[in-house]
Design a protein around this nucleic acid. Structure first.
Length: 209
DNA sequence: CCCTGATTCGC
DNA sequence: GCGAATCAGG
């Protein structure tokens, strides 16, 4: 595979979005993450680490401009290093309700129970995890509800191996989504959701049956 | 061990 | 220019 124009374009786009080199490589296909990184560097678009140069201090060296230091593109996605906590570039969430472009007015039974909904989990389906929110450490729970506010709120089809697959809401409801934050390596969920999904078995010695 | 990006250097 | 190998981290 070669770096065709549109492949480069996709590379730029994804890199700009904070996608990792391996993800980009996977998306492009036919190239390794090394190839992607190499290209990224050759293109001049590389670190956008909070203004601070991770490698060398941009001091001295008054002759580093032959190749021109490609003016940093207006990249806004701040990637807090390899710690993975990519701020969802654009997560405009209008407190759900999204009546904006409802081509169909179909949810009469969709009361504005925003806050309540988050707290009340429809538990019951054989679906994924949905913890019985009764034996989870308050801390973990708090963390989740907090995280769910930052969630990317992606759809089923937007799920990838690296997006948190924690479902939120009632699948039968229009406001059903998946967390979508970066998963904790290996696990299918992000850090917060791993926390509630995998309970170490602590304050739950009763109801043991 | 998984992952990340950075760099080098033969091609 | 390209990217595998390597390096240097988290």
């Amino acid at each position: 595979m070669s770096w065709t124009d549109d492949r480069v374009e996709l590379l730029k786009k994804m890199w700009g979005e904070g996608q990792s080199a391996s993800q980009i490589a996977k998306e492009l296909g036919g190239v390794t993450r090394n190839a992607v990184i190499g290209k990224v560097h050759r293109l001049g678009l590389s670190n956008r680490t909070t203004g601070a140069a991770v490698t060398d201090a941009p001091e001295a060296a008054a002759d580093i401009d032959v190749e021109a230091e490609v003016a940093a593109p207006p990249v806004e996605a701040a990637r807090p290093k390899a710690s993975s906590r990519p701020e969802p570039d654009a997560a405009p969430f209008p407190e759900m309700a999204g009546e904006a472009e409802d081509e169909e007015d179909d949810d009469p039974p969709a009361p504005p129970m925003s806050a309540a909904r988050r707290a009340i989990i429809p538990a019951g389906q054989p679906l994924p995890p949905q913890p019985s929110a009764n034996e989870i450490s308050p801390e973990a729970l708090a963390k989740v509800t907090e995280v769910e506010k930052q969630a990317r709120r992606i759809t089923l089809m937007e799920l990838t191996e690296r997006t948190c697959k924690w479902p939120v809401g009632d699948p039968a409801t229009p406001d059903f989504w998946f967390c979508g934050l970066p998963v904790q390596q290996g696990k299918p969920y992000c850090e917060a959701h791993v926390g509630v999904a995998f309970q170490p078995m602590s304050s739950r010695r009763d109801r043991k049956r």
